[in-house]
Design a protein around this nucleic acid. Sequence first.
DNA 1: TCGATCAACGAACACCGTTCTACGCTTGAA
DNA 2: TTCAAGCGTAGAACGGTGTTCGTTGATCGA
Lengths: 237, 237
Amino acid sequence: MSDLELPPPPWQRPAAKRPRTPRAPLSRDQIVEAGLRLVIEEGVDAVSMRRVAGRLHTGASSLYAHVANKEELLLLMFDRICGQITVPPPQPQRWREQLKDVMRQGHEVLLRHNDFARTAIASVPSGPNALLITEAMLAILLSAGVKRQVAAWALDRMFLYITADAYEVSLERGKIGELSSQLADYFGDLPASHFPNIRANADVLTAGNSADRFEFGLDLLVEGIARSLEKREPGGD
Amino acid sequence: MSDLELPPPPWQRPAAKRPRTPRAPLSRDQIVEAGLRLVIEEGVDAVSMRRVAGRLHTGASSLYAHVANKEELLLLMFDRICGQITVPPPQPQRWREQLKDVMRQGHEVLLRHNDFARTAIASVPSGPNALLITEAMLAILLSAGVKRQVAAWALDRMFLYITADAYEVSLERGKIGELSSQLADYFGDLPASHFPNIRANADVLTAGNSADRFEFGLDLLVEGIARSLEKREPGGD
DNA sequence: TCGATCAACGAACACCGTTCTACGCTTGAA
DNA sequence: TTCAAGCGTAGAACGGTGTTCGTTGATCGA
């Protein structure tokens, strides 16, 4: 019967309402974009679920409504990257140059994304964009007369090469200059009793930049394929 | 003046003595061995400082008295692994087979260590064992008449190839069978409008096991090098 | 004996991927 | 209009990571 109104005791206070900022719902695209931005700015190790979510002003667990796990996110990011590569219709007389062009593009696209190639190495290129590239390169090889099995396996090897080299280059990126000269000195200082050839060739072992080496490897692969055009089908000998 | 002896108040209790198990001191070798055992048993992700230390019945921070950081530990482990490869004196007439043999060894040694190749990709092969391999392979190439710069860069590319392929194989290891058939089905189901070549060649794209593909890539590289023996020195055109 | 050095210990820091519970909002059916 | 179901989001918590920091105990040399 008392008209006196007391404040509610602490044990009866209603739970604080969880503030919810009204905003457009998250999307997978946004998550992928945020992840790629982080890669470009800080490298692949910066892509944690918390960091990605922070970029979108949400929480890490919110991402799991859109991607199954981090691995799926990285795969999506990879396929998004593959979408930046343009593939040409096959010109049989120029198959070598066409192959190299696509491979160079792939390499460059990866390098534009810091050390993301580390993830690419571990990924099966099965997203829509990656498959379009596979399709185009396969068409180029087949149009050149390369045997089916050679074409298939060469594709596989080329993909491996691009991603592995891009990863390696990304690791050296911050230290390409100092590492080379230090390595040359190191090689030159090795004991002659065990390392005569390395000592004598320290200059060429440390020569060239990463682009030189990548191109050299492209040549090896493409020349190796060319040689197969002059031979029997593999796996048949 | 009182003979009454009170127990010491809690704030004056001496700190509990830290028990120290008497044992032989840790060594770098032990740490490396423990790391490698973990790799073999559970893969490279199991190699945390805590796990390694646990194997040695000590604490993670104790490892830092022997290795600078985890990266150095992984490098040491890598070079230990390289010590399992035996290199032959050069036989110029058999340079192809000699190269392949060393590369196969390297590949196999890595595969025996689960997915440790992931670490190997990121490592500059500069430990004593790795350098002995470099020295031997360089000798083989030079004895075959390969130009110095080609030999140097070919070595670099071969090393990259071995480690990258070993890593890729280690990833597929647990799923090589199901992945192949699933991929073949997947390829066969792609829309014909965009993927006529993949559809028509799903069989060869998914054919062969990892050893087939590795050998195929070896051939590409070695044939590419062979071709260089018939051409001018690279970087000169 | 004392002081310096070093290996080892354990707590703590700043992070990680993911799960779990709860909440708020939307939608559709009654 | 109301209610229930479903789904996205929030935040705490779990079980981990590499590393640093301060401390302790042992050894060695003066």
